[in-house]
Each structure stands twice: as structure tokens, then as C-alpha cells.
Design a protein around this nucleic acid. Structure first.
Lengths: 153, 153
DNA sequence: TTCAATGCAAATATTTTGCAATTCG
DNA sequence: CGAATTGCAAAATATTTGCATTGAA
């Protein structure tokens, strides 16, 4: 089972990564991993829980939180910030990519960022700050939601 | 009293804006406005509360939340998202500017963004999304914290 | 004088922690 | 078998709401 954007990752690799870091492969973790890796949308813990519980009814919300914590620690997922919600996650893609997010449904795609190196250099000179990291995130409406919005009108 | 970056705004203007929108000018609001407009750092509601209470001891935390809500609604302040904290605010500056934030102390400066128009055009073509908005935010260490870190070592 | 605004207390919502039972390796 | 993991319940956080009192206009 590969992830939604052909990012080259699949749940077996994620489970292997967990194993390699000394974590056990439990059914609860498999359920959470499957949900996150296969989602086209950004998901919040409660959403992961609802979906994963269908595959693994014994699942507890606490385990979702704890599994997310480990996946984030291993760099397999990353937190996405949106205006009113900063506890959503997506599968990480290799390299420094940026997110384009649908504000209607949470569907996301990665895009290659501009080379902002020159900008950073000039900002460091102007401000005296040493830059460490940056976020570039774009919000919009995905094709599916455009279609649906058109249908409604 | 003007704000920390000579943004051209002062607390009287903010109070006038509140008044113009039908809100009353209370001592509690003056205290909150003064704190936010004069802060060099991004502040969370609880921090605003602690500082503003010194000027106006009767202040309640709830009033801070409610005042922040109104200031945001009027576009006088904007919410800042950071890795583990998305309920911090800064005075808004005119135009589309981006934030450079110190990860140590929360000090911030605005910088003029690149023109990302071309990027948006090409992304819309590639993905089928219609873009609406974007965040570009840089994290780093401010000159003051660089100094302090140097002193410690 | 009137009604918006306040501040307390209580209610919500979200995330974390303690712990006994379970399960992976 | 032993230790990591789980899931429940309870605790801790953060934010919002209800309401009687206060105070701006």
C-alpha cells in the first residue's frame, strides 16, 4: 500500500522504521500508520482515530496521540498549521517541499519551493537575525472542491 | 505611544478604531491594547494578561480573550503560528508583509516578501488548485539572543 | 439611564498522565 | 517470560459561555 502521492513510502517502510528504532509493531500502530499514509487529506488526531477505529475497533484515542508522536519524532509525518487548527498531520515527503492545502477539504499536494536563499541572505543582512528555518504554505481550493462548488451554484 | 517598529500605529488610533466600530473604550481594553501595541515580542493571551494586569489589576483573562478577538476582527492584530503554539499575536502592519521570528524570545520583525506571483501561477497550472492565500514565515535568532548565547559560552 | 462590557465561576474541548491489563518479541 | 504498549479513567490545559454586576456614553 503506497501513499497517496507516490511519495515512495508505504506502510511497511514506516513499520520497519518504527521497528528499527526499537518500537514494537502492534496492530494499533498498523491501523494508525495505514490511515495517515493513505490519506489525501490533512488529518487531526480525532479524525485519525475515527477512521482507524473502523479497522481496529479496540483502538484508543490515547494510542493515536502516542503513535503520532513517534511518527513525528521519526520524521515520517509533519504537523500542518492552518488558521484555526494546528494539530493536523501529513506524511512527510523527502526534500524541502512546501504544502498547498485546500481550505475546503484539507486535500494537499507538495510543490517544489522557490529558491529563497537570496532572500534569506538579504534579510540576515538587514535585520541581524540568523535564519534557521522557514514555512511557505499556500492555501487554495482543490479541483474536486471547485467542481463541487460549481455544482452547487 | 507608538508601536515598536514605527509601524505608524499607536494605541489612540486603535482605541479610535474600536470606537468607530461601536465598541466602548474601557480601561480593560486600553490596558490590553497598550500591551500588544508596545510589545516587541509575539504574545500569547496569558502573557498579555500577566503584563496588562500590572497596569490594570482588576483585569480578567476572559477580557483579554474577548479584546483580542475584537482586535483581530478589526485587523489590528494577527495570529502568529509557531511550531508548538498558535495562539500568539502581533500588531498587524500595512501591506502584505511577512514575519521573521526569533525562536528564543519571540521578538519579531516584518520583511517585504518576494513577489511570489509567478510561483502561484505555475502552481495553479500544475495542480489545478486555485490559490487564495499564503504564509511565508522565517524563524531564526535575533541579535539580542545571539549576544546572550555568545555570553553563555 | 441603558445596555455593552466585565469578571467570576462553570462548562467545553483538547491533550497528557497514572496505572493495571495486555501483548510483542 | 519481561518489558513495551495499550486503553481506560482521571488530571491538566486552554478556551468559551452563562450570568449578575459594573460602568461608558
Amino acid at each position: 500500500m503506497t501513499c497517496n502521492q507516490d511519495c515512495g513510502k508505504n506502510s511497511q517502510e514506516w513499520m520497519a522504521a518504527l521497528r528499527a528504532n526499537g518500537y514494537r509493531l502492534t496492530d494499533a500502530r498498523k491501523a494508525v500508520v495505514d490511515v495517515v499514509i493513505n490519506s489525501r487529506e490533512v488529518l487531526r488526531p480525532a479524525e485519525v482515530f475515527e477512521i482507524a477505529k473502523k479497522k481496529y475497533p479496540k483502538l484508543g484515542l490515547v494510542t493515536v496521540y502516542r503513535t503520532i508522536e513517534k511518527l513525528e519524532e521519526l520524521g515520517l509525518i509533519q504537523r500542518v498549521h492552518r488558521e484555526q487548527d494546528c494539530q493536523a498531520f501529513v506524511a512527510t515527503r523527502a526534500g524541502h517541499n512546501h504544502l498547498l492545502l485546500c481550505t475546503e477539504c484539507g486535500r494537499y499536494v507538495y510543490f517544489e519551493g522557490e529558491d529563497l536563499g537570496d532572500l534569506f541572505t538579504s534579510i540576515e543582512k538587514d535585520t541581524g537575525y540568523v535564519t534557521q528555518d522557514h514555512w511557505l504554505q499556500i492555501f487554495g481550493i482543490c479541483p474536486v472542491c471547485q467542481q463541487e462548488m460549481g455544482d452547487d451554484q
